[in-house]
Amino acid sequence: MSVESGRSALRSVLLTVFGALALLPSAAAANAQSAVVAVSANFTDTAKELWALFEKETGHRVVLSFGSTGQLYAQISQGAPYDVFLAADDERTKTAIEAGFAVEGTEFTYATGRLVLYSSDPGFVTGEDTLRKGEFQRLAIANPTAAPYGAAAIETLKALGVYEALAPKIVQGVSITQVYQFVDTGNAEVGFVALSQINGREKGSSWLVPQNLHAPIAQNAVLLKHGEKNPVAREFLSFLRGEKARAVIEKFGYATGTP
């Protein structure tokens, strides 16, 4: 390679780099029209449909970030750049407000979750007697200290008086999504999942846990400080309260409105 052609190659590389840098401000401007929403794992499917609907209706961009409620809260408390927090409980949202990570007065219950005992084996789950008989080796639940569905599962077992007997069989998933994986792959015969997860899936057997066996799983949304001045974030929250969004949320197996 001659010196001359080497120089021109260098120049074209530099031009490309600077060209890319010049584009950056406009990309940042586009970001002003978007919002980042931290979504609790159990709401994944529903959130994806809501997201598509919202983007289609408004033309704004929304980025969804999934995780367990505890994990997301830990990230938020360390300054994660989320604008909206869709938790799986009403505790983390309150803590977020008290700790100054969220905007007061923006909290509301967007969905009430329903707990389901589920097995990928058709006919395996027949009702609460499946728990009373305990004819299985592994019962999967979400981590009860971090995930509300896990806490509700423990409450249900205690309400039925079978907790002591079944405790040695409990395996924990990080989130309700992992519980579903454990059960779906057959590594655990049964597990407590969210109704929204098995909605529309044909195979397996399940028992819808009556709501009087555990405290309601109120899932609250809140506007985070990071998104306080973001119009898209506010618009997403009011969209979430709207009729269209509620129809989607109910379709996926949640109750809406304050329980």
């Binding site: 080796q137 592994r138 057959g186 590594n187 655990a188 015969e189």
Partner: peptide, 15 residues
């Protein structure tokens, strides 16, 4: 793994 675990009366070697 499930085949081996069957010998111990477990559904799976996971967990």
């Amino acid at each position: 793994g499930g085949w081996i675990a069957g010998g111990f009366g477990l559904p799976s070697l996971a967990f």
